[in-house]
């Protein structure tokens, strides 16, 4: 049984929490055209690493708030707990973020606004 440090309520029993799976999955923007196979990377494909994994968790039986956590899938150690919408700060979690398979996918690249080669940016 794990003791998980809810950022709002403090250390609580694992049974109070729900794991929401892989964190940092950005939705491709409509302005970027990608293939169905590439959209599937966003919609269906999930990482399953041995080692540090960045996950979303929800304190469902407590404050009902979501947060991100970096957890080692081998030892179950929670390396870092950080807020939704932010990136991890510890080295191990940062490395896990940078080296994740998803960083190289076309769906993640399509989640950023398309680079404009000419137009407003060139003038100013």
């Amino acid at each position: 049984m794990l003791l998980i440090d809810c950022p709002h309520c403090g250390a609580r029993d694992e049974t109070e929490f729900a794991c929401g799976g892989e964190a940092h999955i950005a939705r491709p923007l409509a302005e970027n055209t990608i293939s169905d196979a590439e959209f599937a990377e966003y919609l269906f494909w999930r990482d399953n690493p041995k080692g540090v994994f960045l996950e979303r968790w929800c304190h469902t039986a407590g404050c009902r708030r979501w947060f991100n956590a970096a957890r080692d899938t081998v030892t179950h150690e929670f390396i870092e707990i950080y807020a939704m919408g932010s990136l991890p700060k510890s080295k191990a979690a940062k490395d896990a973020y940078a080296s994740a398979w998803r960083r190289q996918t076309a769906s993640e690249k399509a989640a950023k606004p398309a680079q404009k080669t000419s137009g407003k940016g060139a003038k100013s």
Binding site: C9, R12, D13, T15, E16, A61, G62, C63
Partner: peptide, 10 residues
């Protein structure tokens, strides 16, 4: 005051 689980009930 805490929100938690008692048996099977929140």
């Amino acid at each position: 005051a805490v929100q938690t689980i008692m048996g099977h009930a929140g």
